[in-house]
């Protein structure tokens, strides 16, 4: 058993009268890749935002490396710096080049010297195969390239884990591959990843576990072969049938 990096217990989230998360227990160990699937509106993005410490839970606890995040007076920004986040929309800083985007975190948050931050950023851009595009602005990059810059921006912080929220959902099919390939590469290198995606090929190849979310709960989980071939719950069976059938 490896070290548990991120975990939660009895996690609940309410917006107004709507309970979006209804009690989630979850943990992920260093080096693992876990994939979350589930119908639209089931709370996947909300779950990820909570685990990324971007929003506080209504109830329940989140643990980072064993420490209760909201219970022990920890500096949330310090923790956020260790949890990478890649959004569905590229969300790049539009006044900065690709390099500027990737460099900003190391420089401003990790307080690296300019050259050091730049080296770090170039390394991250190489990992996502964009070193030649370093000096282009977001508006001059394709959606897939922007998304890879977003991945590089997370990587350059040397995070303990990276969360991905449907990083290819807003991309055309051809652009999806370049992003998925980079993510597979990261998973193989041992980067800890929690990924919401419906790219089942990715899940099959690199996921240690797939979690099926429905109506604010994780109602089924297991290794990819098992969950994808023989889903136990009718909801998961129905969802996968539609997903694979393309309906």
């Amino acid at each position: 058993m490896g070290e548990v990096i991120l975990a939660c217990e009895g996690l609940k989230k309410r917006y107004g009268d709507l309970w979006v998360l209804k009690g989630i227990d979850f943990e992920i160990e260093r080096g693992q890749t876990k994939v979350i699937i589930g119908p639209s509106g089931s709370g996947k993005s909300t779950f990820l935002r909570l685990m990324g410490l971007l929003e506080p839970p209504t109830e329940g606890k989140i643990y980072f490396e064993g420490k209760d995040v909201y219970g022990s007076g920890l500096d949330l920004n310090m923790l956020r710096a260790k949890i990478g986040f890649v959004f569905q929309e590229p969300s790049l800083f539009r006044h900065l080049t690709a390099l500027g985007n990737v460099k900003l975190g190391p420089k401003v948050v990790l307080k690296m010297k300019d050259e050091e931050a730049e080296r770090k950023a170039m390394d991250a851009l190489k990992t996502v195969k964009l070193e030649e595009w370093a000096h282009h602005y977001p508006a001059q990059l394709s959606g897939g390239q922007q998304q890879r810059v977003g991945i590089a921006r997370a990587l350059a912080m040397d995070p303990d884990i990276i969360l991905f929220d449907e990083p290819t959902a807003s991309l055309d099919i051809e652009l999806t591959w370049e992003v998925i390939d980079v993510m597979k590469d990261l998973a193989r290198r041992g980067v800890t990843m929690l990924v919401v995606t419906h790219e089942l090929g990715f899940a099959k190849e690199v996921a240690d576990e797939i979690l099926f979310m429905d109506d604010g709960r994780i109602i089924e989980s297991g290794p990819p072969e098992e969950l994808l071939k023989n889903p136990k719950t009718p909801r998961a069976r129905e969802f996968l049938r539609r997903l694979i059938g393309g309906v």
Binding site: N77, F85, E89, S91, R94, G150
Partner: peptide, 16 residues
């Protein structure tokens, strides 16, 4: 808003 969220995810403070 998405850029503010991205800044937050990097651990940037409000002032940064």
């Amino acid at each position: 808003k998405d850029q503010l969220m991205a800044a937050k995810s990097l651990g940037m403070t409000f002032r940064q």
